[in-house]
Amino acid sequence: MEQIIANGLYLGSQYALIALGLTLIFALMNVLNFAHGQMYVLGGFVTYTVYAQLGLPFIVGLLASATTLAVVGALIEKFLFRPVIRKSHREESTMLLAAGIAFFLDAVILLVFGEKQRGVPKIVNGVLNWDFRIIMPYDRILICVLTIFFIAAFIGYMQYSKTGRAMRALAQDKVAAQLMGVNVARYSMIGFALGAMLAGLVGGLLVSITGVNLGMGGPTSIKAFMMVMIGGAGVISGAIAGGLILGMLESVGLSVLSQYGDITYLLIFVSLIIFLAIRPQGLMGKPWG
């Protein structure tokens, strides 16, 4: 049981960090960013290049991933989403744009980094073995701690910084925020860059555990959407709760139901359908959006 909980917490923390960026972008711009998974993959490849290929410290790789994705996110918002949102009031326009960006990033990643699975040397060696009740490699523990640290830092930033307050105001009521002097265009761009940066950061963190390959983008986006739906779209605490719940469900299901074949995700999806039928706004979302 201890192992199942440890696995669940580890998975949940990384899922939560993935979902945070997605929910932030949704909250600020009402955009379903289908390219979130591809941004995660790009972040993984940047860390791979810096850490494994160039031989620089892992932390430099992480910083490079975060910076690259922040820049990519800002450019995407400024030159792609902003004009589309200005010209079209139909939500599907931004959805199609996001899907197009996902395909574009897939193609770029294939061209630049190739089709193969890539991995990096372990950042910490050794395995914690607590009497065979919990077995957890030290690098997973470190990544879990770093993930929790980044989540806490993100919450702190959103809570106490001027930019964070402006973005929260924007998420709550765009018109009111604008009337209060919040520069919508500027903070939308910062928000999108921050969301993309989180995707890049978690991609960089997890490349040391799971490696990275071109095909990870789509499934990562799907999981991130599931977490956001569980927790409530556009709610930061909801994304964290959604991530932890999904991680725990996955860990329990894969351990307890393993002898029945791969029914864990089947049950998760069935539960999600029933849950959304009862509470379509998710755990912490508001019915009015």
């Binding site: 696995n7 580890y10 990870m216 860990s251 894969l254 351990s255 002898q259 074949g261």
Partner: peptide, 19 residues
């Protein structure tokens, strides 16, 4: 002979643990 995993799994520790 019947433990399986999702095609898009990235973290295999929970899958492997029971085996």
């Amino acid at each position: 002979g019947n433990i399986t995993y999702q095609v898009d799994t990235t973290d295999f520790t929970p899958v492997i643990t029971p085996i």
